[in-house]
Simulated assay, not measured.
Amino acid sequence: MQKNKSPILSRVFKLILLIASVTLITVVLQIIGVPKWITIFIILMLYILVMVIRPIYIIYRSKSLRTIDRYISNNHQKPIFGYAYAMAHGSKEDIEQTLKRIMNTYTQQDMRDIYGANLALFQRNPSTLLAHAKKITGQEYQDYYSGHAYVMNNNFDAASESLAKLHTPWMVHSLKAYAALKRGNQDDYRSEMNQSINSAVGMQRYILHHIMRRHDNGDFT
């Protein structure tokens, strides 16, 4: 899998930038006579903003694919980010390996079943997909992956029942897109997939975008 610039160099640059910023802010606050305890509080808040809040926002709320890609590229060694990175930059084998790595890394059963469902979906294995889906405790995720398994088996009536239970927009449109694709309706597929991407945020938006890009490039045919 092709790697972007060294994540170590990127982290070093960010650390240098953070230290320089903290130093500058500290000097400015001291010059204008801000009390020491307020200075410490401001620096602490800056650290939390940069190191904690910003990554959480990028992963779960950002709509900027470029920002998400930059963060994922710098953290692709971690299993979950490795899967997203492989979807954007790797081969089919890379995607499978990163999904298997997640399943082997995390002990939480739901994590194993959700990413196991993603692997089964990627491998077009409806029986394994449905088996994983039925074990997911989150009802909406269970219905979402079950619906995909039913579509894969051309059981559109059962898929429609699963679809009716979904409330999250990106899930609704993603399942509709897959059903349209299975029926051979490319126009409906693109329309629903675009709506799914537009209604998603963070890493989910990023992954959906690259699923559609790969389909357009013929990677999933």
Rank of each mutant, 00 (worst) to 15 (best):
A179P: 06
R205L: 01
H173I: 06
N155I: 05
M111N: 05
N155Q: 12
Y85S: 06
Y47D: 11
V12Y: 00
A120E: 01
R112S: 03
V12P: 02
S199R: 07
I58Y: 09
L121R: 07
I48T: 11
K5A: 14
N194P: 06
E140Q: 07
S199M: 05
E93M: 11
N194M: 10
A158R: 12
A84S: 08
Q109W: 02
I95T: 08
E140M: 01
M203D: 09
D69H: 05
D110G: 13
I207W: 06
H209I: 04
L129Y: 00
Q204H: 07
A177P: 12
G202Q: 06
P35E: 13
Y206F: 11
I42L: 15
E161N: 14
V52S: 03
R214L: 01
Q204E: 13
T168N: 10
G82S: 05
R124C: 02
I211H: 08
K36Q: 10
H76W: 06
M203C: 11
M212H: 14
S196V: 14
V27I: 11
A177E: 09
A158C: 11
Q2C: 08
L18Q: 05
R70M: 08
L99M: 10
T168M: 01
L175D: 02
F156M: 06
R183I: 09
V22C: 09
I197E: 01
G202W: 00
V28A: 15
Q97C: 08
M193A: 14
L119S: 05
S21T: 11
T221I: 08
I59D: 03
L119E: 01
Y60H: 09
F41I: 02
M193F: 12
L129H: 01
D219T: 05
E96N: 14
I114N: 02
L208G: 12
Q139L: 13
G184E: 04
M111G: 02
Y83Q: 02
S199P: 07
I56V: 11
D143N: 15
Q195K: 15
I53K: 14
N125T: 03
I42A: 15
F81Y: 09
H167N: 15
N217A: 15
Y115R: 00
K134Q: 14
L129G: 07
R61W: 01
Y145R: 05
N153I: 07
M51T: 14
M171S: 07
R124E: 09
M111K: 03
L129V: 00
Q195A: 13
A20G: 09
R190H: 13
Y106C: 00
M51P: 02
N153D: 09
L24K: 08
T39A: 09
K3M: 11
M103W: 00
M152L: 13
R213S: 13
Q108W: 07
K5H: 10
R214W: 04
R214H: 11
N155M: 01
N104K: 06
R183F: 02
G147R: 04
